[in-house]
């Protein structure tokens, strides 16, 4: 609970992404992006929202022991790269007491968790994390 004095709008404008993993799909060519962007590789600027699937596969990971200030009490963090229907997302892997059991290719699902807390009376930020589907 390090005092961050996090800005409220800076957090809530990203709720579609942090809460629902909402990416964008290009209307012209169908490419999907997470995080969203303004211009597609094909040059088009027209997108529609595209929520990513809630299950996927772990493709790479690391157990991070040296963390930024606001994560000090949660360390170590397991950071993973996850493939959600062809779109790769990087985030925390949770509910895994034994990281030795993790390996590329295992199934994971999206969960909704607290990401960080801004001191005693400040904001609590929530967002997506990933959990191995079979016990870890």
């Amino acid at each position: 609970m390090v005092d961050q004095r996090l800005s409220v709008p800076r957090y809530w404008r990203r709720m579609p992404q942090y809460y629902r993993l909402e990416g964008v799909q290009c209307i012209k060519c169908g490419r999907v992006y997470f995080p969203p962007r303004a211009v597609c590789e094909c040059g088009s600027r027209e997108f529609k929202p595209y929520p990513l699937p809630s299950t996927g596969k772990l493709i790479n990971f690391t157990v991070l022991y040296s963390v930024p200030a606001e994560f000090e009490k949660m360390k170590p963090l397991i950071m993973g790269m996850v493939d959600l229907g062809g779109v790769k997302v990087i985030g925390q892997i949770v509910d895994c007491m034994d990281p030795e059991k993790l390996s590329p290719g295992i199934d994971v699902e999206v969960v909704f968790r607290m990401v960080k807390m801004d001191s005693t009376y400040g904001l609590i930020n929530y967002g997506y994390k990933f959990r191995p589907i079979n016990n870890c």
Partner: peptide, 14 residues
Amino acid sequence: EGFFGVTPAAQAAM
């Protein structure tokens, strides 16, 4: 990335 705790060390590790 940084918001979720990703650091340059985590990227290098992967």
